[in-house]
Design a binder for these strands. Structure first.
Length: 486
RNA sequence: GGCGCAUUCGUCUAGUGGUCCAGGACGCAGCCCUCUCAAGGCUGAGAUCACGGGUUCGAAUCCCGUAUGCGCUACCA
């Protein structure tokens, strides 16, 4: 086993969207696999037919693809251990559970939901410490079982938990965890509709798919003894376990839809970069042990180990996500942002106007350090794409004085003299205008910014002017002089 | 109720017996830079390391207990 290269899996159930907790689980599996030269497998756990959602699988696959956490084996890419969708593996569960039945480690149970409920109520009333199935059907004779099956009675297959030593779980993150066998219920393995439960399916598949490390959420820790028992009964080698801490809401309950967005799709739609989402989610429960917090995927692969995973749950803090997103945008090459800006423009009110790459690249350079999302290019600097149609009233009050129009006319005269001016040319022109007027440059700078952009914040004014260009700048100043009445 | 896991600034975390009256990051406040807003730089507020006992010359770090939180307790995953 030590010499084998690891095989790990991400095993989501297609419920309609990819949960950010699921993304984190997928990420850690992926990182572990890549770090140790192993294989990352995607397996779809769709054994609950009541939870079937149309299109959920396709959506899940698409979202995983978007994150870039591409599996080595899975429904899309195939592999030697398929099929990778549990509903297509029903025969395998049947086959293997039969072995258990023959060995007396599992048995048919014909108890009705009503009897089960009654039993449960009785146990509650009797204040029994544990609520467990009473093994009623274990004592049916072979003939009785056969008869019931042949007469069409509904049944499930249960695990036969017998007394014995404590079940010990070795968990990479939590150390050893022990469970008394008497606390383990005779878990249903095959449901009455013929589908396996998670417990059976995941053990059978993990074995058949030669999974070496089971890396999953902490909510599975409590049912792990059932899985270990199953491995034991089957006589299969037990994989290593690593139970990840939960992702939490601000009130420290398990991260849920009620308290904000939990779907990766939601964050994607809001404009978060996959790089940022991955970076952020990686830090929820793991740290490299130093002060580094900005990571690209390949750096994470390099540094990631399960030993450094935190034990306690982590609150999903949107402020930090925003910071990381801004940080990633800042660090992107402008050329790499270009296609996204173009796409954003295409879906905006400016879709009918075309801008040169050169122009857009300048806009990106100017705005990159001032935005959190790509959409902020439009939200915070729409003036690069159209003349301002209104002017910030507060800035008018602060910066636009009665003498301002006169000053700006002088400034325009200076600008007129320029030929294809750049940053410094605008600066020289503005300063000489200020000198002629015997005023400080600020008396010109702020009104120009307002005239040209409609607002009081943004890139340096000369940068702004250079990007917009002489003609456009003069046009806008003239318009502002007309429109802004003090 | 039972079983299990966890517990360091508001949040994410560093820390594996002395270098920790606890370091970093986000957020917050202030200063610098500056034509504005960001970015960047600097500074600050913010944690009796859940609590109580031990062990030890010495504990955030080891042990025990308590509390609190969370998870599981389904023919859901």
């Amino acid at each position: 086993m030590i010499n084998e290269s690891p095989r790990v899996r991400f095993a989501p159930s297609p419920t309609g969207y990819l949960h950010v907790g699921g993304l984190r689980t997928a990420l850690y599996n992926y990182l572990f696999a890549r770090h140790s030269n192993g294989k990352f497998i995607l397996r779809i756990e769709d054994t609950d037919r009541n939870r079937y959602v149309e299109g959920a699988l396709e959506n899940l696959l698409e979202t995983i693809e978007w994150t870039g956490l591409i599996p080595d084996e899975g429904p899309k890419q195939g592999g030697d251990y398929g099929p990778y969708i549990q509903s297509e593996r029903l025969n395998l569960y049947k086959e293997n559970v039969d072995k258990l039945i023959n060995a007396g480690k599992a048995y048919h149970c014909f108890c009705s939901p009503e009897r089960l409920e009654e039993l449960r109520q009785d146990q509650i009333k009797a204040r029994l410490p544990q609520l467990k199935y009473d093994k009623h059907c274990l004592f049916l004779s072979k003939e009785e079982v056969l008869n019931k099956i042949q007469s069409g009675e509904k049944y499930v297959i249960r695990l036969n938990v017998e007394s014995g030593p404590k079940v010990m779980i070795k968990d990479i993150i939590r150390g050893n965890v022990e469970f008394d066998r008497s606390t383990i219920d005779d878990q249903v393995l095959i449901k009455s509709d013929g589908f396996p439960t998670y417990h059976l399916a995941n053990v059978v598949d993990d074995h058949l798919m030669k999974i070496t490390h089971v890396i999953r959420g902490e909510e599975w820790l409590s049912s792990t003894p059932k899985h270990v028992l199953l491995y034991e009964y089957f006589g299969w080698e037990i994989p290593e376990f690593a139970h990840l801490p939960l992702l939490l809401n601000a009130d420290r309950s398990k991260l849920s839809k009620r308290q904000g967005d939990v779907a990766v799709e939601d964050y994607k739609a809001k404009g978060y970069l996959k790089e940022a989402l991955i970076n952020f989610v990686a830090l929820l429960g793991w740290s490299g042990g130093d002060d580094k917090e900005f990571y690209y995927l390949d750096e994470l692969i390099d540094k990631f180990t399960l030993q450094r995973v935190q034990k306690s749950g982590a609150v999903f803090n949107i402020d930090k996500l925003n910071w990381i997103n801004a940080e990633h945008i800042k660090n992107q090459k402008s050329e790499d942002i270009l296609p996204f800006l173009k796409n954003t423009l295409l879906h905006s009110e400016f879709s009918r106007i075309s801008y040169t790459d050169d122009y857009l690249l300048k806009v990106i350079e100017a705005m990159k350090s001032r935005i959190v999302f790509y959409s902020d290019f439009l939200e915070r600097s729409s003036y690069f794409f159209a003349s301002p149609n209104e002017y910030d009233q507060q800035i008018i009050e602060k910066r636009w004085k009665p003498e301002t129009p006169g000053h700006l006319r002088i400034l325009i005269e200076e600008f007129e003299k320029l030929n294809n001016p750049a940053h410094d040319d605008f600066e020289t022109a503005l300063k000489s205008a200020a000198e002629k007027l015997q005023i400080g440059a600020g008396k010109l700078i702020h009104p120009v910014r307002l005239a040209v952009s409609g607002i009081g914040v943004g890139p340096g004014v000369y940068e702004l002017l250079e990007i917009l260009g002489k003609e456009e700048v003069i046009r806008r100043i003239n318009t502002a002089i007309e429109k802004i009445a003090v």
